[in-house]
Amino acid sequence: MDLGIQDRVAFVTGAAGGIGARVAAMLAQEGASVAIGDIDADAAEAQAARLRERGFAALAVRVDVASAASVDQAVATIAKTLGGVDILVNNAGFTRDKRIGRMDEGDWDAVIDVVLKGSFLCTKSVLPAMIEKKWGRIVNISSRAYLGNPGQANYSSAKAGLLGLTRSMAMENGRYNITVNAVAPGIIDTAAVRNLPHFEKIKANAEASLPLPRLGRAEDVAAAIVFLASEQASYITGDVLHVSGGRYG
């Protein structure tokens, strides 16, 4: 199936590893030129080099998504090297889990700034080129945690906020043939999850309780994102696609 993203330019944040790296690779396989955005410049370059070794067009850009100046510089670099951004995947994020009584202002701000403010800044920066081309795809990586998780008030709030941003941007920009959607993964088997001290318990609980009894794979999430970035999803906007094995509560 032709996804219609051949020769498009994609910017994936937090793409040096995990889900972001898999998304970038899958977009590259479909013919897009990809910019690997990450705050870790060396890791971003290593990932971009791996894609270039496979014959794909890939550029590493260091970006602190919580800084407007850093985001604008990264987008300008991408435009100069690859062309204006056609596809934006707001993937950068992390957890800093604590019960609310132990969560300080820094814990709250750090997660909100990267996940929610970062997505706002990246979206704002790439929109002019998309509007000029009358074509764009923005995919925000939310989480099933938007429904709430104990110990994740900061993360759940940020991921819930992304859904409001998604729907607002979809309504503002549909007239320019720009779609804005979100993907909400469940528990995905990534290096970060495997390094959790209670990983085996997480895995056992998933296998025992989910309608699809396994942990998700990065490929599962990447496939959903690439679909939403494609021409095949041209009449879908303002929506959220759950990739959670059937877990919603």
Rank of each mutant, 00 (worst) to 15 (best):
D2W: 07
Q6N: 13
T13L: 06
G14S: 13
A15D: 03
G18I: 09
V23A: 02
M26Q: 15
L27C: 11
Q29A: 15
G31E: 08
S33Y: 02
A35N: 00
I36L: 03
D40Y: 01
A44P: 13
E53C: 12
R54M: 15
A58G: 04
A66Y: 07
A66G: 15
S67R: 06
A68Y: 01
Q73R: 12
T77W: 02
I78E: 02
I78G: 02
I87P: 00
L88G: 04
G93I: 09
T95L: 15
R99Y: 10
G101E: 14
R102H: 13
M103R: 09
D107P: 09
D109E: 05
V126E: 01
E132K: 15
K133W: 00
K133E: 00
I138H: 00
V139Y: 02
N140K: 01
S142G: 08
S143G: 04
Y146K: 09
Y155V: 11
Y155H: 14
A160W: 05
G161V: 06
G161C: 05
L163M: 09
L165P: 03
A170D: 05
T179L: 04
P185Q: 14
I187P: 06
I188T: 10
A192M: 14
I202W: 07
L210E: 05
L212C: 05
D220R: 12
V221N: 09
V226S: 02
S230Y: 03
G238E: 13
V240G: 15
S244Y: 07
S244V: 06
